[in-house]
Design a protein around this nucleic acid. Structure first.
Ligand SMILES: [Mn+2]
Ligand SMILES: [Mn+2]
Ligand SMILES: [Mn+2]
Ligand SMILES: [Mn+2]
Lengths: 226, 226
DNA sequence: AATCATAATTAGGATACCCTAATTTAAGGA
DNA sequence: TCCTTAAATTAGGGTATCCTAATTATGATT
């Protein structure tokens, strides 16, 4: 039991990505989705998934997809915890730009010993969310239940508070930051263009509403107000 | 010119180790010394050295050894800078144990973007030495000239101030920390046993002198007092 | 100058990840 | 039920990094 289990950076990124994709759609996660998220080919993913399955980190159902095992989920949550703690540190302590820290944290998350993670969490006073609003798993890997809905599901005319932005990528974050879409802001869905058109969303304090594609609106989570 | 040059963790560790070995003895660095330091076999080192030479990071003289090129040295110094900045952070900010941080920093040093390095240095107020007394290269890779001598070269009866400890390894550091050998302490070489025997060194404030092997005494650098 | 020990090098393999080009399977629509 | 298409899988390679077991070169010693 409890083999030495060296977790490579690659392994950690696979597990983290599977965890993120599992939260979005109903598992199992399709090989092709994983491939797209990780930026590698499907055959590469399949091969890696077989390696992960051999280590009991995921379950692979041929032609269906992958799911994390308990052990795999624990590892994934540990990576997510380190990632989001580092993001907090980079924004709050080092004052690096909100839209850049995701990429920096994606490197640090694989190079952080447990003692460092613990000390960092203590130094930051055990924060519960990352700068993009996403929950930081606790030391046991648990996250509070999610009470948010995608901006995409808001009714026209409805107002809401922006909670979190998922699928953090520098380009998306920079785009959103420039338009005021930051966790905590108040916004109103003013209109939705037909035929899968964009959503017109006004951020409180901005003169004009922003036009957000559905792809983006599905990545922004909100809590409706009143 | 200036290819994208992805520097792997392995490459960085080779360059850093070569730099450290170059500071100790007269270059070039022997393949077997590098192998021992890195904990890999000589054929592996030779193979890697050829790869590094092909990237113009080192020069290899067959049957003699390796030396860093200017480009290689720049990379090595950048790694050393990140390493020692992280050590300061881990000790000063996160308050992790002096003897443990070297190993943690050895992971972080390969996962730190330039913007993070710069912000970290600024946050720490541009420190000039690591917790073990070794100089932190500046952003350009320069280190101040070394004015210290190995404890091994002290004359019997002479007193000195401990400046830095090189070849940081958790076991050595723990051993020294327990006996009071920390940068800044005052010590006196009381005796040297003949036939390559140990050095009897008293740390100011300690009742009994400690017996240090020559191997260890060569890794402790001091500045003689009066 | 012959000998020896040590270090360096060569030879032959292994593993983790990644790729492109086939080929096969699954699942929905005709 | 048959067809079509997209997704999954197999086949065949490639590179970086590591290893052990020879073999060979160097430099010091007789
Ligand atoms: Mn990452
Ligand atoms: Mn985040
Ligand atoms: Mn390292
Ligand atoms: Mn140090």
């Amino acid at each position: 039991m409890s083999a030495i289990s060296i977790t490579s950076e690659s392994t950690e990124m696979y597990l983290k990505s599977i965890a993120e994709l599992e939260m979005l759609a109903t598992p199992p996660v399709a090989i092709s989705h994983l491939a797209q998220r990780l930026g590698v080919s499907s055959p590469s993913v399949l091969e890696m998934v077989k390696r992960l399955a051999a280590q009991n980190l995921v379950t692979h159902t041929p032609y269906k997809g992958v799911s994390l095992t308990d052990s795999g989920r624990r590892r994934a949550m540990a990576v997510l915890r380190r990632h989001r703690l580092w993001e907090r540190f980079l924004v709050d302590t080092l004052q690096l730009p909100w839209e850049s820290v995701h990429d920096y944290a994606c490197q640090l998350e694989h190079a952080t010993a447990p003692a460092v993670t613990d000390a960092l969490a203590a130094f930051l006073d055990n924060p519960t969310t990352c700068p993009h609003g996403n929950p930081i798993p606790d030391a046991a890997g648990a996250v509070p239940p999610n009470r948010t809905i995608p901006l995409l599901e808001l009714a026209v005319g409805q107002s809401a508070r922006l909670e979190n932005i998922i699928y953090e990528e520098a380009i998306l974050l920079e785009y959103l930051a420039r338009r005021g879409f930051l966790p905590g802001v108040q916004l109103t869905l003013e209109d939705i263009a037909p035929y899968q058109g964009p959503l017109m969303v006004r951020v409180s304090g901005f003169d004009h509403p922003a036009a957000l594609g559905r792809e983006i609106a599905a990545r922004i989570f909100v809590v409706p107000t009143e």
